[in-house]
Design a protein around this nucleic acid. Structure first.
Lengths: 208, 208
DNA sequence: CACATTAGTGAACACTTGTACACATGGATA
DNA sequence: TATCCATGTGTACAAGTGTTCACTAATGTG
């Protein structure tokens, strides 16, 4: 019989989660993954799955939690690297794209989950996006870049910004990871989107 | 043995496609549907599937084509119903939402396909969105509402508009079809998004 | 009318799937 | 040290899967 050493606690759990992400990274859709498939990819016997998750939806929910950590790391780096206010958009988009590349499977999972099968996962991702948007609003407030906007209008603007970036994600994940030209195009386009939105925000009161 | 009457040509084909849509409408993800499942829902023997489609991806591609028709109908109605230029955004959003409600499963399929499993379906949907955006640009040009924008900037604006609306789709499809309050909220928010974008477009030259 | 084509059927195939059960083992706890 | 429990393993099974095959009835074409 094969050895059944138990290594660090939670190791198999992580193997299963990253196995699912690996399969997603290979082009599979999370909704089409099965328990056996994931355990096979993780190099673990199918029964082990139930030691950690009740079903695939449960695994998805726990992936959403980890996704939250990835997003928070990204925000922290963005805040640390904002050198000048007028380059804020460009630099933030660049950081976002590099994180999306570095955690491709994670963001793929996020893009899939937005219209996914599990309502709970869907809501989880949406919630992460709302949090992201509200943090962005806080930052902009603190930098005093948007003093003329009401809280509500600022929230709306940040919401739109986050959505636009999230949509660019699906562009980004659609091109191969080493197609530098296309990635650069996406970066430029996303940057212009955000600039357009902020121009709109800057003139919002007069038009609203 | 059961009767095997063949009715109109292409009837089973349609039954299969709408069976897939029905399952999607019930909350399933297209990527997780199987051939047997679809044929069962259509009330047809599994073998019949192969008379019309090579596999599920093929069926998905043909659904994208039909989706194109739905979108074109929507555009036609929007063009016919634009009463006054200053209500253009509000009325267009309202038409969009009513079409999305009337063809819920179709739009659900579209939202899923954007980050779906089949690259071909993904590209098909993207292509429909590009077409939609370019038609929008033509209309705006014709109405002479955006004379100060270059073609390129206009394309970008329309692209952003279409993306924002598409993202609102996922909001809309996330709430139950008879939750009028939430739907109204989504309608208002989407309208404001577009207004913000167009305010940005109106002031774009001076800032770009 | 004869005939090829299309579009339906059911039976069978070799696999894969989710899940249940009994069992083993290492580490923490008492 | 003795015990418990979380975590691992192998086996088993019923149900579901995609696909092939041979057969049949309706339709369009000569």
């Amino acid at each position: 019989m094969a050895e059944k050493q138990r290594r660090k606690p939670g190791e198999t759990r992580e193997k299963l989660m990253s196995a699912a992400l690996t399969l997603v990274g290979k082009g599979r859709h999370f909704a089409s993954l099965g328990i056996r498939e994931v355990t096979r990819q993780a190099g673990v016997v199918p029964t082990s799955f139930y030691r950690h998750f009740r079903n695939m939806d449960d695994l998805g929910l726990q992936l959403v939690d980890e996704l939250g950590l990835v997003l928070r790391r990204m925000m922290r780096e963005a805040r640390a690297n904002v050198s000048q206010a007028d380059k804020l958009i460009e630099e933030s988009v660049a950081i976002f794209i590099s994180h999306a590349q570095a955690n491709r499977s994670f963001f793929l999972f996020m893009a899939q989950g937005l219209a996914g099968e599990s309502r709970a996962v869907q809501e989880g991702i949406r919630s992460e996006m709302r949090f992201f948007a509200s943090e962005l609003a806080n930052d902009l407030r603190r930098l005093r870049l948007v003093d003329h906007l009401s809280d509500q209008d600022l929230d709306m603007t940040c919401d739109l910004v986050v959505r636009s970036v999230a949509f660019s994600l699906t562009d980004l994940l659609g091109v191969s990871a080493d197609d530098d030209y296309q990635i650069e195009q996406i970066r430029k386009r996303t940057t212009r989107f955000l600039q357009l939105i902020f121009v709109g925000a800057a003139h919002w009161q007069s038009a609203g």
